[in-house]
Computed example of a mutant assay.
Amino acid sequence: MNKFWKLLIGLFFVFSLTGCFGESYDFNPPSVKLSSNSNIESEELAQANIVWRGEGNKIKKELKIKDIFSLAKHQQQMNFIAGEKVDLLFEHTDFAPKGLSVSVWQNDKKFDLEVNDISFYLPKDKGEYVIEVNLHTDRGDAQYVGNINIGE
């Protein structure tokens, strides 16, 4: 009986340690989606300028886009309601956030939006905008852009 308990305890430790070895982390920058009450589906933003580090603090992904406005304009247009609350959804969060900013551009005018946690409110003025999201983390920096239309 004593051998049975030793075997059972030994198996318990082996199985509990396998969970520690089975973890895997995604060292890619997350995809970012916009979600609101007016949209049934979340809309994904395009990756623009990225410097992202992986295991051992080595560069995992580096992307440099000179003309983010051109990239944004070539994305499928997302429709939102003026003044609406929008949430940012991240594909994964295998990083520690250090800062998050959201701006919208209309023509050459930039409007910085106040971000609370992962939410922000769109401008109350209708029209077509380019949205820019900048994420700063312990893994690096990532910029995302999109083409949005703010209407009724």
Rank of each mutant, 00 (worst) to 15 (best):
K33G: 11
K33M: 13
S35C: 05
S36E: 03
N37T: 14
N37W: 10
S38K: 05
S38D: 15
S38W: 09
N39T: 10
N39G: 07
E41Q: 15
S42H: 04
S42C: 15
S42R: 06
S42P: 02
S42G: 03
L45N: 00
L45F: 04
A48K: 04
A48G: 08
N49I: 07
I50K: 05
V51H: 05
V51E: 07
V51Y: 12
V51N: 01
W52Q: 02
R53A: 14
G54Q: 01
E55M: 12
E55P: 08
G56N: 10
G56V: 04
G56F: 09
G56D: 12
G56T: 05
G56H: 03
N57W: 11
K58Y: 13
K58F: 14
K58H: 13
I59A: 09
K60P: 02
K61W: 10
K61G: 10
L63N: 13
L63T: 08
K64E: 14
K64D: 14
K64R: 08
I65T: 01
K66C: 06
D67G: 07
I68V: 06
I68K: 01
F69G: 14
S70P: 14
S70N: 07
S70L: 11
S70C: 13
S70Y: 09
L71V: 03
L71I: 04
K73E: 12
K73C: 13
K73F: 04
H74S: 11
H74M: 12
Q75G: 04
Q76D: 06
Q77D: 05
M78E: 02
M78P: 00
M78Y: 12
N79C: 12
N79D: 10
F80M: 09
G83Q: 01
E84I: 03
E84D: 14
E84K: 00
D87G: 06
D87Y: 07
L88P: 00
L89W: 01
L89M: 02
L89N: 08
L89C: 05
F90C: 09
E91N: 03
H92L: 00
H92P: 01
H92E: 10
T93S: 07
T93K: 06
T93G: 07
T93W: 13
D94R: 10
F95S: 01
P97L: 11
K98S: 12
G99Y: 02
G99R: 06
G99H: 02
L100Q: 01
